[in-house]
């Protein structure tokens, strides 16, 4: 359990940009999905997208916002996302397509899970932005979209 108290900043703070960027490259930014109807809470316990058990409390006068930073050090950052985790499931047509898909996902620092013959992308942002990155593979049939939820 990681005990967190208070909001330490926002992901858009210019003073934190370099530090966050460095963490992103190392895959060390964790997202904590908070259902919008729970946003008024001052205390909650949730698991981040990378499996960290976060026990969070806020000051009585603090308000949770989308993008709020709950933790930041040299090892990792924990960022609040309002909503729930969206998953985009992709199936490569063959080995060649699988190698290409894996290469893209890795270079783009996408969060992924592996599921029997499929790559599941953990979406953080508009799906269109993700589709655009794979436009060629999708249009020539190398990769097929199985589900988005």
């Amino acid at each position: 359990m990681l005990r967190l108290h208070g909001i330490v900043g926002h992901e858009t703070d210019t003073s934190l940009r370099a530090q966050l960027h460095a963490l992103e490259h190392r895959g060390a930014i964790e997202l904590l999905f908070v259902p919008p109807e729970e946003a008024g809470r001052k205390r909650f316990r949730l698991i981040s997208d990378r499996g960290t058990d976060c026990a969070v409390s806020l000051g009585r006068d603090e308000e949770l916002r989308d993008g709020a930073l709950l933790h930041l050090d040299r090892e990792r950052a924990i960022v609040v996302r309002f909503g729930r985790q969206r998953l985009w499931k992709l199936r490569p047509a063959d080995e060649t397509a699988a190698l290409k898909l894996g290469w893209h996902a890795g270079n783009l620092h996408w969060r992924v899970r592996f599921e029997a013959g499929c790559l599941v992308v953990l979406i953080d942002g508009p799906l269109a932005d993700y589709r655009a990155r794979l436009a060629d593979l999708l249009s020539d049939g190398s990769v097929t979209e199985i589900a988005y939820d």
Binding site: L2, R3, L4, H5, G6, V8, G9, L16, Q19, K42, R43, S57, G59, R60, L70, H71, L72, D73, R74, E75
Partner: peptide, 20 residues
Amino acid sequence: MIEAGKTSATATAARLPAAR
């Protein structure tokens, strides 16, 4: 830059508000 551990270690050691 925010120092390592500031959010967890130090804040937890300081007095936290009571849960209601």
